[in-house]
C-alpha cells in the first residue's frame, strides 16, 4: 500500500500561492493590531530597557550611579565559573526533560483520544498535575521525596536504601527533572489532544480502505498531521526548560544547592539581580540565554523543515 502522507501534509503549501494566502495588508494589520500595541508597550519596551542595562554597571537602588561598561558584563560570562555551572545544569535539565516530556504527552493524548472507557476520568487525571500551582507541586514532591517519605518507603520494598533526594548532590537535579516531567506533561497532552481532534476522520477512513493498519495510520497520518503541533510543543519546551526557575527556587530555597547542583541560569540571574544588586550583569545573562534559546529554536525550525516557515 502506499499511504503517502504528503496528500494533505504538503498540499496547502503548493496551493497557498494560488489562492489562500493572498496579500491583504490592511486586514493583516487589523487582525494583529491589538497584539502589536500590547507587545510593544508591555514587552518590547521593557526588554529594550533591560538590554541597555546589560551594558552598564547598574542597580535599581541607585540608577543615577550607573556606569557604561561596554561589553564587560558579557565578557565576565566567560570567566564566571558559577555561571558555567548554571548553564551546564540547565542544559542537562533541558536535554533530559524535553524528549521524555514530549513522548509521554503524545502517548497520553493518543490514549485519551481513543475509545477507552472512562475517557473523561483519565483526561482529568492526567491533567491534574498541570492545574496545580508550581509551588504546591514542589511542596508535594518535597514531601514525597524526603528521607522518610512515601517514595523511599516504596523503594525500600526493593531494597533500595532511603536517601534525601532533593538534598543529594547527585540526585537533586534528576529528581527535579522527574517532577518537571510529571507536572508539565498534562499541558502538552491537551495541546496534542486538540491537534488530534483537528485531523479529519476521512483521512483515516481513506487509509483504512487502502488497507493500512493502526501502526501505519499513526506513522503516515497522525504524526505528519501533528507536525505543526509537535513543532510548537518542542519550541515551548525549549523555552520553558531553559528558563526553569520556580521549581529550583522553591526546592533549593533560592540558592541552587546542594553545592550548586540545582543552580540554573535564571535562578543565578535572579540572585545576581536581586540579592547581589548587579542588575547589569543579570541582564547580560538574560540576553545570553535569549541567544541560546533563539539559536536552538532556529535549529529546530530547520529540523522540522519548510513546513514551519515563518
Amino acid at each position: 500500500m502506499n499511504a503517502q502522507p504528503t496528500t494533505v501534509g504538503t498540499k496547502p503549501a503548493a496551493r497557498r500561492r494560488r489562492s489562500g494566502l493572498f496579500s491583504d495588508p490592511l486586514m493583516g494589520y487589523l487582525f494583529t493590531l491589538p497584539v502589536i500595541v500590547s507587545l510593544s508597550v508591555f514587552l518590547i519596551g521593557p526588554i529594550i530597557y533591560a538590554f541597555f542595562l546589560s551594558f552598564q554597571s547598574f542597580t535599581f537602588l541607585d540608577p543615577e550611579g550607573a556606569q557604561f561598561v561596554g561589553l564587560d558584563n558579557y565578557l565576565k560570562l566567560f570567566e564566571d565559573e558559577r555561571f558555567h555551572r548554571a548553564l551546564f545544569n540547565t542544559s542537562i535539565y533541558s536535554l533530559g526533560v524535553i524528549p521524555v516530556q514530549v513522548s509521554i504527552a503524545l502517548v497520553l493524548a493518543l490514549i485519551v483520544n481513543s475509545k477507552i472507557k472512562g475517557k473523561t476520568f483519565f483526561r482529568v487525571a492526567y491533567f491534574l498535575p498541570t492545574v496545580t500551582s508550581t509551588v504546591a507541586v514542589s511542596v508535594m514532591f518535597l514531601f514525597l521525596f524526603k528521607k522518610d517519605g512515601l517514595l523511599n518507603h516504596f523503594l525500600g520494598w526493593f531494597g533500595i536504601p532511603a536517601r534525601s533526594w532533593f538534598d543529594d548532590v547527585t540526585f537533586a537535579l534528576p529528581s527535579i527533572m522527574v517532577m518537571a516531567v510529571w507536572s508539565t506533561v498534562g499541558q502538552f497532552m491537551v495541546i496534542y489532544l486538540a491537534g488530534l481532534q483537528d485531523i479529519p476522520d476521512d483521512l483515516y477512513e481513506a487509509a483504512q480502505i487502502d488497507g493500512a493498519n493502526r501502526w501505519q495510520q499513526f506513522w503516515y497520518i497522525t504524526l505528519p498531521m501533528l507536525k505543526p503541533t509537535t513543532f510548537f510543543i518542542v519550541v515551548m519546551s525549549i523555552i520553558g526548560t531553559f528558563q526553569v526557575f520556580d521549581q529550583m527556587y522553591v526546592i533549593s530555597g533560592g540558592d541552587g544547592g546542594p553545592l550548586d547542583a540545582t543552580l540554573t541560569v535564571v535562578l543565578y540571574l535572579y540572585n545576581k539581580a536581586f540579592k547581589d544588586f548587579e542588575m547589569g550583569y543579570a541582564s547580560a545573562i538574560a540576553f545570553f540565554l535569549f541567544c541560546v534559546i533563539l539559536i536552538l529554536t532556529l535549529i529546530q525550525r530547520k529540523f522540522f523543515g519548510e513546513e514551519m516557515r515563518m
Binding site: 528521607k147 517519605g149 532511603a162 532533593f166 538534598d167
Partner: peptide, 9 residues
C-alpha cells in the same frame, strides 16, 4: 546531622 539528611525541612 543536617536537617536534609534527617529527612526534614
Amino acid at each position: 546531622d543536617t536537617p536534609a539528611n534527617l529527612g526534614v525541612e
